[in-house]
Design a protein around this nucleic acid. Sequence first.
RNA 1: GUGGGCGUAGUGUAGUGGUUAACACGUCAGGUUGUGGCCCUGAAGAUCGUGGGUUCAAUUCCCAUCGCUCACCCCA
Length: 424
Amino acid sequence: MAFKTPRGTNDILPEDQAYWSYVWGTAEQVAASFGFGRIDTPMFEDTSLFRHGVGEETDIVEKEMYSFDDLGGDNITLKPEGTAPVCRAYIQHGMSNLPQPVRLFYENPHFRYERPQAGRVRQHHQFGVEIIGDPSPQVDAEIIELGWTYLSSLGLKNLSLKINSIGDGACRPTYLELLNAHLEHYEDSLCDDHRKRYKVNPLRVLDCKKPGCQSVSVNAPASVDHLCDDCREHFELLKGTLDDLVAAGALIPYTVDNRLVRGLDYYNRTVFEFEPADVKGQSTILAGGRYDPLIEILGGKPTPGIGFGSGVERVILNLKAQGIEVPEARTLDLICVHIGDNARRRLVTLAATLRAAGKSVIVAPEGRSMKSQMRYANNSGARYALILGDRDLEQGEATLRPLIGDGKEVQVGLDAAVIAAEMV
RNA sequence: GUGGGCGUAGUGUAGUGGUUAACACGUCAGGUUGUGGCCCUGAAGAUCGUGGGUUCAAUUCCCAUCGCUCACCCCA
């Protein structure tokens, strides 16, 4: 065929929409229950926003951005992640003058040029939340609780929660030195990739799944053991609050995972991740962390922030895998079946008044036998068929026949209010 | 960017070195006179991903290419 969706993109067909509205609806409801306001940032931004915000050394900036010059010569980039744009908006609109912190959520597509595979596409959709302007570990816990509330409201089961602290500007450099020394000592055991690159980003080694790197990272110094006093206190308070939430039944138990790191430069202190228990492939369905340095990097005054992003494609994959049923899309109320041209013309206007009365109505295709129209009505899933022949037109009445269940058909006048009232 | 698997009607599959490529579901139409679902009958619908090669002959064998898919990298 001549045209198809570009690699890594998908049409979301009507039969799949029930999942999407279920997920978006749940996200909006949960976000509202935590007092978050929705923000929509543009689908594209100045490329420099991401170069500065996400970090030049990251994979996203180095090789995954959809960047191009527009006709005016500006270099723009399709949004690869949501946090930097939200922080840009926070600065641009002077939100530091609002009561702090500011709670924002979004749900929109993101674009990354990657090789597609299970749970990974080039245009993916995220539900994301941010709390900006509050350094307290209380809001870290609030964000994590919100993430869990969202996932559990969807009905997902068998999830695990991992948290970690990766320190801050005060303690991370010292820790990285320790880690580097350790990696250098066991350099020969590292996988080929990391033997070359561990000096550039030693944290990545901890995340590596190759046996060699795993064996080295098991005994590697853990960041949580080398936090500065402030970071340690922050982490302890966070764990304490999470423990309270677990005790109150508002959160699943968590584990501290020393090897949990984040790929974006702006993260500090708290990082966390929810994933299905049976891990395989691209499994993380919700992940986030604190990004206290970001607003200042983007030119605002120093302002702490924390948030998460959750991939809707992956969430839906898990909903399907777990056999979770979602509410069906709205069904059709009525199909108008005609016998004769005059009847059909009359049904067109009758359908219009019925729609105005709030019913969903379609008129069966012209030029088909009645049997064919009834078959069509049946396949359409409509609740009722309204049958009108030219000879009924003279009597001024039609037949309203239920298509679901075993109700009896009734004669009705050609009056939208009467017909609507008959459709229970 | 690297590696594995796969490419036959709308969908899911079968099949063979040789006349009109099969089946199921779906679609459409019929099963007489104004009524769906079950059933029966029929029809439409495939340049067998694309290009090249081997061969008297290829959808079937070989190569390339593109696409899909899974995994690595990385990430939601």
